[in-house]
Nucleic acid binder design. Structure first.
Lengths: 188, 188
DNA sequence: CTTAGATGTTATATTTTGTTATTTTTATCA
DNA sequence: TGATAAAAATAACAAAATATAACATCTAAG
């Protein structure tokens, strides 16, 4: 990353977004050069290029939301779900149920993280095991629980029933089960 | 380090960056000589050469984050990962899992440090040995543990399974996001 | 005088940037 | 919708800026 690219990031930190045109003007350089800078920055995961403008990727260590952006409930770390959409928006959800719904809405996500329900550690959502259709309601209904270990998920299932599925099967499950609270209508 | 090189460092401490051209002028010396000075300073880790410009390396005594900048968890020193990117930004991560993910994002980094999981001392990440695919979850999943000694990593592996790999293999492991129905399947 | 180390000069390689032509995306209107 | 125009992105190439290598020159110490 060169010095101009660093400056671009600093400018972006202050504003909401910037146009390619404006950046080219400010640095007295061609738009092509800015395009190249932004391509590099996007490659490195710092910004998001968007037809004429750039937005900064969210800083994930600041302003950690404590309300679910899907259903509004207070988020408990033990069950939390985090999603960074391809558009660069950060979503914090209260549980895999809301997390998977958000994933469905924002589809092509840049990063998706779930929390192991038993140990409370963070897991890559794609690799997690999900327990659905179980005889227990935690947080939202229909309840979905995330587990790191399939063995533990199966043990949990012994007591509470349901099915242990992978990420995409869980998304499919959410798709088929109409739910009550939905914030945005936009889906593709 | 000669006297002129010491002066270059002093000048850089004051400003954000300097051009090779300007330095050559200020010292009344050819650009080639400045190039040689900067090559030496960069070799010693004091500056960063950047096609026409030099910037000083960051001072690492400032604002030591205690939250992982990848997943947000509180950082335990025993497992911490530190990354100084080429442009001088400091990243603190909770474990090698997040550390390697950050490395993937920030690519060519100036300095990358892991912590030996058993003894807690800092090691150069490139020289460390990593245990992946193991039957134990620490901090994040998929768990990656860093060891200074390969022998100790192998002993650890005896009990908890997994594979001992080098830095680049570990990065490769993190790069892959396989959708696996079973994580702790004892793969060798 | 000889030699080692530092510096300068020149030629060549590499990187970065700008320009143009072409393709892709978005907006507009019937 | 679907056709069309406008805006923006991309690719390919040429030009400019910078870096590097090889060698020449200078200086100081022995």
């Amino acid at each position: 990353m060169n010095y101009r690219q660093k400056l671009i990031l600093e400018k972006l930190a202050a504003r909401d977004y910037m146009t390619i045109e404006a950046l080219a003007q400010e640095f007295g350089v061609s738009k092509m050069t800015i395009h190249r800078d932004l391509a590099a920055l996007q490659q490195a995961g710092f910004v998001l290029k968007q037809y004429g403008k750039v937005t900064a990727m969210p800083k994930r260590n600041s302003s950690w939301a404590d309300q679910c952006q899907m259903c509004g409930q207070k988020i408990k770390e033990q069950n939390a779900f985090t999603l960074v959409s391809a558009e660069g928006n950060l979503y914090r959800l209260c549980c895999p149920h809301c997390g998977l719904m958000a994933y469905r809405q924002h589809g092509d996500s840049w990063q998706t993280l779930a929390t192991d329900f038993l140990h409370g550690h963070v897991i890559t959502a794609f690799q997690a095991h999900y327990l659905i259709d179980l005889e227990l309601t935690i947080c939202c209904s229909p309840t979905v629980l995330a587990f790191d270990s399939r063995a533990e998920a199966l043990k949990f299932q012994k007591g509470f029933g349901g099915r242990v599925v992978d990420f995409y099967q869980a998304v499919e499950f959410i798709n088929q089960n109409p739910i009550r609270s939905q914030i945005h209508g936009g889906s593709q």
